[in-house]
Design a protein around this nucleic acid. Structure first.
Lengths: 350, 350
DNA sequence: CTGAAAGCGCTAACAC
DNA sequence: GTGTTAGCGCTTTCAG
């Protein structure tokens, strides 16, 4: 040993045997207390808990995993370049901690041909007790099927249930998008453009439908020439912005299916010396941090990602414990956030 | 059982015993092959590997953890609201995967009084083989000391070694900041303001020194009234921007110790109808995603977080294996990224 | 309600 | 070079 220090900088961890001895009970009883089993007399329980406290006992998780054939680990599979994953992690962990679950993360590329193999690799031999799936990975063909096949409990964030054993947590994308159109209409806008998100993503589709609903409600013409297809990225927002700004007459408002694309449209407007919102209103969706940092600040829809993730994780932990949630699809509502990028429509269309 | 399906959707995982049997060797030999031990004849190794392949053998990690008294887990402790953590995770994982290490993440609040207890809780009983620490958590008094005390190998990203057993990976904050001043000076700027970052953070301090170095090199006056103290946030950037824009004469360029604050300054400029970079140049540091999304796009310094994190993780894995890295402090260089937010100084100061 | 004993799948001495 | 034998700390039958 080349180590200079003596050993034992960490006091030898107490084990269940120590606790059992100290409390004068059997090791099994300690285990029962640990696992919140019902069949323990309160007095015994108290004695054990006291002993645990006194010895600073902390269960050894590898041992629990091995003996119990469970890992107390939840896997989170996501696309490596997703910007919103931090919120999801925070939400998931806040539900995991009280239940003593940990999180194993697996960033990957949702466009990689080997995606399914990667996922299989990640979860077998059952290295996690359950999985949280998020778009766009969860929208890739075969991913959810694979997970079902492997028999791993899972909850999908922002997707629809595929069958009666497929749990999801989502937000009211469609209704709230309609609400945004309403907001623009009230400001006097008639030519409202829409920048669609990636077509494979369920939530993006709902946002588009909500837009159509809103246009129908307001009895506005839906002009196909000002509905453009983006790809969720800032760059695609720029492309869409350029296309839209060329239209005659120009739209007076642009509603984008996410904030990144909205930021792209704002850039295009700046470059053309259009003042926002005087000459053009722009709205986004998600309320990413960037929505507050662009100028002018973006009117958008706050998607409650962290609470959604938290709910998903607690549903998942329920599933792992064989407590089937009552509803397949849980909804947490989004909220319209009006900032400075939307305003009254210009007096006459340009 | 309420489960509709029969069992055994997953073929029973092969164990080392199965592999040993199949290969006609002892279980210990299989273990040796698995752990890349040297003492195995190539022919035997080949036989074993073939058997593993044939059976689709995958080692059971809880069992390895328990028997080997190692977890093959690296902990990442970070401040929950850090925006850059995704890159760090990606970097760390890319170094972990080939070595079969996994990542356990621990978001926390670096301002919480209970921070040290939380950290102790997270890592004991040794639940991770090593730790990666990042600012601002790593800058909190007592954090690194605690980790040393607990005897857990660790590597700090973006910090200085505290002693000869404290490994760090950082970037050339000071030199590259000087370079930014040089860039501004070459554009004709003389009144260059600086927005300082949170004073407790080592890297922020270096950036400030680099600014001073650059001013000295250019033989420019350092006017204390245009050096303001921010707190790393967008909001504090706004405050600093307001203060700076009131100065007479106004600075012609503002160099901010991070991109968030720079974005705040840009907002203030927009509101005052100052055109960037015609009336004012603004520069940031970090090259966060937002740097490309603001308008105009931000001249900044690209901090290679992902490579830094990757290096940190591989150093850490070395430490865990008792391969002491040669250098305490490794540097990966940052790079000046010139975009549209900096330009020639106005002909005369306003 | 509580206890005794048998492993979970692997690693690590120690023999051969 | 390779095999044998004990456990790691916990959960889980199965008795009492």
């Amino acid at each position: 040993m080349s180590s200079a220090r003596p050993e034992a900088q960490i006091a030898q961890q107490a084990t269940m045997v120590d606790v059992a001895k100290q409390a004068g009970v059997s090791i099994k009883t300690v285990s029962r207390v640990l696992n919140r089993s019902q069949n323990v007399k309160p007095a015994t329980r108290a004695k054990v808990e006291q002993a645990m406290e006194a010895l600073g006992y902390r269960p050894n998780s590898p041992a629990r995993m091995l003996a119990g054939n469970r890992t107390y680990l939840i896997g989170l599979i996501y696309n490596a370049s997703s910007r919103y994953i931090t919120s999801i992690q925070n939400g998931v962990l806040s539900a995991c901690r009280p239940e003593h679950y940990d999180l194993l993360i697996h960033p990957c590329s949702y466009t990689a041909p080997s995606l399914l193999d990667q996922i299989r690799e990640f979860i077998t031999p059952p290295r996690v007790d359950g999985l949280i799936l998020v778009p766009p990975v969860s929208d890739v063909d075969g991913v959810r099927e694979l997970v079902h096949e492997l028999g791993i409990p899972s909850v999908v964030i922002s997707g629809e249930p595929l069958d009666e054993t497929d749990w999801t947590v989502c937000t009211n994308d469609r209704e709230i998008s309609k609400e945004m159109v309403r907001h623009l209409y009230r400001l006097g806008h008639q030519r409202i453009a829409f920048v669609r998100g990636h077509p494979a993503h369920k939530a993006m589709d709902d946002r588009y439908r909500g837009y159509l609903d809103g246009m129908a409600e307001a009895e506005l013409d839906v002009d196909e020439s000002i509905i453009v297809q983006g790809e969720n990225t800032f760059e695609s927002g720029i492309d869409c912005g350029i296309r839209l700004m060329r239209r005659q007459p120009r739209p007076t408002a642009v509603f984008c299916a996410n904030d990144h694309m909205a930021t792209g449209v704002i850039k295009v407007a700046h470059e053309r010396k259009l003042e926002i919102p005087r000459d053009l209103s722009v709205a986004g969706f998600d309320d990413m941090p960037i929505a507050e940092q662009v100028w002018p600040q973006l009117t958008t829809i706050r998607q409650p990602l962290e609470p959604m993730a938290q709910l998903a994780a607690s549903q998942l932990i329920g599933l792992i414990r064989d407590e089937t949630p009552k509803e397949l699809r849980r909804v947490i509502e989004s909220q319209l956030i009006v900032r400075q990028s939307t305003g009254p429509a210009p007096a006459e269309a340009a």
